[in-house]
Design a protein around this nucleic acid. Sequence first.
DNA 1: GTCGATACGTAC
DNA 2: GACGTACGTATCGACG
Length: 913
Amino acid sequence: MSRLVLIDGSSYLYRAFHALPPLTGPDGSPTGALFGVVNMLRATLKEQPDYAAFVVDASGPTFRDEMYPAYKANRPPMPDDLRAQIEPMLAIVQALGIPLLRVPGVEADDVIGTLALQARSKGIPVLISTGDKDFAQLVRPGITLVNTMTGTVMDEAGVQEKFGVRPDQVVDLLALMGDTVDNVPGVDKCGPKTAAKWLAEYGSLEGVMAAAGDIKGKIGENLRAALDRLPLNKRLVTIKTDVELEQGPEDLRPRPRDVAALRELYRRYGFNAALRDLEAGNGEGSGRRTPPGPSALAGETAEAPAEGLAAPGAYECITDRKALEAWLERLRDAPLIAMDTETDSLDPMRARLVGLSFAVEPGEACYVPVGHDYPGVPAQLDREWVLEALRPVLEDPDRPKLGQHGKYDLHVLRRHGVQVRGYAEDSMLESFVWNAGGQRHDMDTLAQKYLGYQTVKYEQVAGKGAKQIPFSAVSLEDAARYAAEDADITLRLHRVLSEKLAGEPRLMSVYRDIEMPLVPVLARMEAKGVLVDAEELRRQSEDLGRRMLAAQQRAHEIAGRAFNLDSPRQLGALLFDELKLPALVKTPTGAPSTNEEALEAIADQHELPRLVLEYRGLAKLRNTYTDKLPEMVNPDTGRVHTSYHQAGAATGRLSSNDPNLQNIPIRTEDGRRIRTAFIAPPGRKMVACDYSQIELRIMAHLSGDEGLLRAFESGQDIHRATAAEVFGLPLEEVSADQRRAAKAINFGLMYGMGAWGLARQLGIGRGEAQDYIALYFSRYPGVRDYMDRVRQQARELGYVETVFGRRLQLQEIHSRNAAQRAGAERAAINAPMQGTAADIIKRAMVSVDAWLQQHGDRADMLLQVHDELVFEADADFVDTLLAEVRRRMAGAAELRVPLVVDVGVGANWDEAH
DNA sequence: GTCGATACGTAC
DNA sequence: GACGTACGTATCGACG
């Protein structure tokens, strides 16, 4: 049957450019993108389509620019290295005999759309080869999409599955979502999920617009704000299918290739594999080994296009000793080993090793299964034997290793008896340091962003939800495809990201001198865990439970009926509808809030609000802490092992989860009691060391404000000193209220708070709050100048940075939305202080750990809570520890103010404060 | 049963 | 809308 293949040349050129390492030809000219495209074309031709066209954008404006002058205004200019590859690409396309189309005034998309519909009307099946999701709107019987980079084929069912809408709804979906790359703003906060939901409900864009008044919440407001531009969006994203063309589908027969011209071109650009095939007289792409990935075209198993793009590479599944030894040889010779482990659990403290993968060159990776277990599983190498064989490499500090979130793999291997040394690079942390604004740093996201590559998802091999199977039950074939890709992609990501970091010495230093050395330190803290008195917590749970029940019964009594105290909605209905109490606070969606502030405000008018507050406080402690922590005790170690997320907070802070040990209560009596359950074992003590007012000290340092610096140098209570300065009083005459106000200002400023917030915080009028702030700035003019400088820098550079050079990108600093922009400005104010504090304590941790490592088992670092480090130490070692930790924490940075460290010792965490 | 959004509250 | 950074629990409605 005849068939038309339409190739979206621009899309592949861009993707290949970003996906492949910056290769160069024999003469040094850039060839990376060219290489990818050529391999893709050779694979396509091997399928011998009857009709084909390579479509690229012509230069000059199109009808879309006339419709919307800002169209694609965000696009950075084409990199020179890419521009240089266009002419060679077109020459190769010509030599291969593929018809080339460039039509001025429209985009390549429109040419493809028109040809696709023409062919379909003549009964010619059409395959559109592209990496651009917008083409999903053209899918219908007879028109299919294929992405040779990811090997995915998309028909109508595929569109429905991927986008959740029918192909004819895709333009509506795209109009709602907008397209940041093309500078077409959609509905704010409306992604594919929300857009698909609306379209499912209202059928079309017009239906959604008509129903805009009924859509609740902030997203509804965003929709209403965007109504005006949606029709234009739709016209912009709609691919034209009625362009006047000189050629019809039947004019697009491939010509015979020009062997002499190809030989010359391949030779010039150093495409040796292609040249070999050409000289061997093979059809394009033949003679290569079968890749493990899905096929590029038509669903049958295609051959790998040389070292190319369509398939991820040559992946080997190792099940015999000889093969492993051959790979060991490669690992020993490699300058850097990309590695990854596969296990049966996400919990690194429980996970059992199922397999390991390695890569040393992009596109070449192996998977060593050691724990697959399903009926009919082929023979695998013995786990112990494999680990013994790998041990010399993995434990050698002089053989650098690379991973993606390698802390996890370090844990797994340690628990299987291998102490990894020389863990030198981590692509997750490279990405985090390179761009800590907003996005996630998981491999799938990074592969998409930096390589333009869609990885095989875990769900694709192991399923999800109830149907998920452990990785040990995944077939060796699927596992090898997935796992080897992980190592391969990690290596490719590292090549891209390390290059970027190399051009920014300060960022490189954050990565090299702070983040990477911290990895094994965190791993040790997590592995050690903290001892928790589960019995004590159970007793507290019982006590809390009794008091909750009493509060609940009393609340139901007063209400005159039973209701769910845990349901804000039911509570709101009772308080504000039935009892007619005033609703003084609104939630972000506009509903009356029942939060603490709202209830406090009406607590003098009715008994119920106070009881609800009582109940809430008790329920929080029990549900979140006293009930849960005992469940988190690891049966093997008898301790609780949190995980620290090193790329979690955009400012550079760590975060803690499973369980979160960075938000254990301290402010209330009942809450603090939970800390008594964090204990030291017999013969040991808990030791807590925290930085005193570190962020305010950093504000003094960064602003250089004389008054603030003096206040810290005096060594006085900083809030009292601030109050004395602001109110023009001697220290001893500062009243409690004045100190409270000064404290609120000190903290509020660091968070970018305005008069409105301060007034609310202090329960005073807005005018009075504004006066306080003005007074503060008049006494500390350096602080105001600093804040102005930071906002300025954020606007000019799009990022702010810490003392050590860590950057936070602030995408929304130029948002058209005033609230978003204001939010970004507040983040800009806060990030240098919060981030510098994070840098400092991270440096301190590395330093303290290095010292602890020299002292065997006398003490262990257990926890980090942003400005505090918690240790467990032999009782007779406590004094030594205190002196050294103080010294190293205080010495972790040289600022214009001293860093002061407060310490405490006790039998439990509460006493250590 | 699972998932995502919303509300709330804990820490620094 | 109004104070920065996190994580966890409960409810509730949608979905299969």
